[in-house]
Write a protein that binds this DNA or RNA. Sequence first.
DNA 1: TTGCGTGCAAAGGTTTTGCATGGCA
DNA 2: TGCCATGCAAAACCTTTGCACGCAA
Lengths: 153, 153
Amino acid sequence: MRGSYNTRQKRELLSFLQERSMQHFSVDEVVFELRDRGEKIGRSTVYRYLEQLAEQGSVRKYPGVEGVTQYQHVEDTDRCDDHFHMMCSRCGNLLHVDCSLMRSMTEHLMACHGFKLDPRETILIGLCAKCRAVDGEEADHVADCHEGCHHSL
Amino acid sequence: MRGSYNTRQKRELLSFLQERSMQHFSVDEVVFELRDRGEKIGRSTVYRYLEQLAEQGSVRKYPGVEGVTQYQHVEDTDRCDDHFHMMCSRCGNLLHVDCSLMRSMTEHLMACHGFKLDPRETILIGLCAKCRAVDGEEADHVADCHEGCHHSL
DNA sequence: TTGCGTGCAAAGGTTTTGCATGGCA
DNA sequence: TGCCATGCAAAACCTTTGCACGCAA
C-alpha cells in the first residue's frame, strides 16, 4: 500500500511543507533548500510525493509563471472551499479572504451573469499590503471592516 | 525592423486570431487548424509571432491546464484594464464583466484587506451559463441587473 | 525477508534557438 | 539586392517513467 513507509525523505519534505505553509514553491526550491541544510532528496521523489499529496488534497498545484509548476501546502482542505484566495504577484504569499462582500459577489455573478464561480480554482492576483509598502507606495490605513469579513495568511 | 514584412503566414495567423477573438487556443491548435484548411505554417513561426503580439499587448498569454500555454487575442488592450475576466473551466470561453459590484469589490479589498487587485492578471474561474445548461443543471433565469453592470464575450 | 520508496537516467512533452533558405520590398 | 521571415533540427526546459537498489517494517 502506498505511503505506508515512514522514510527520512518524507519526514524532511513534510517539515518543509509545515515551514512554508500557505506559501507557494517549486519542486526545485524544495530540492535545493533541503539540500542546503544537508538533507539530500531526489527530484523524482519530490515530484511523486507532491503529486500524491495533491491528489489527497493537502497540497495545491497550479501552473506558475515561467512554465514551472507551483505547489502550496494547505492546512485544512475543507476550509478552503468557501472563501477566496489572493496571491501577491511580488512575494507570492497567499492570503485567504473570507468576507461577506466576496460571497455577495459570487451570488451576483450567478444571478446576473449566469456564471458559477469556483472559489477553489480562482486566485485573485495583485499586490499585498506589505509589498505595496516596500514599493514606496504608502500603506494606507486598513479600515475596520463590516461584520463577517476576515483575511488571514 | 521587426514585423515590417507582410507575409502569407502573418496574414493567415491574423485572420485566425480575428475568427477566434477572445477565445483561448494553443500553438498546436493554430498549426493544425491552419494546416487543415491548406495553410501551412511552422510551429516556430507561430511561437515567435504570438510572443511578439503578446509583448505588444494584442495577445494574452497564460499557463494552461496540461502545461500547454494558452493564447488569446484581445481586441482592444486598453479596454481590458478596468474590468474583469471570467473563464469557463469547461469550454474555455472568456467573458468580460464590467460591473459596479466588481468595482466595489476591488475597492473593498483595498480598503479592508490592503490588497491591490490587478484586473488584468486576475481570471475568475467557474462555469458559464451555457455549460451549466449542457451539464443538465437548469439554466437559471438571469435577472436584469442594476445599473452599470454588463458582460460580453 | 518482503515490498514499498528512492534516485538515477532515459523518455516524453513543450518551448526556444541557431542557421540556412525563402520571400517581401 | 538587402534583409527580414520562415522552418527545420537541435537544444533547453520541465516533468514523468522504468528499473535496480536501498531501506522500513
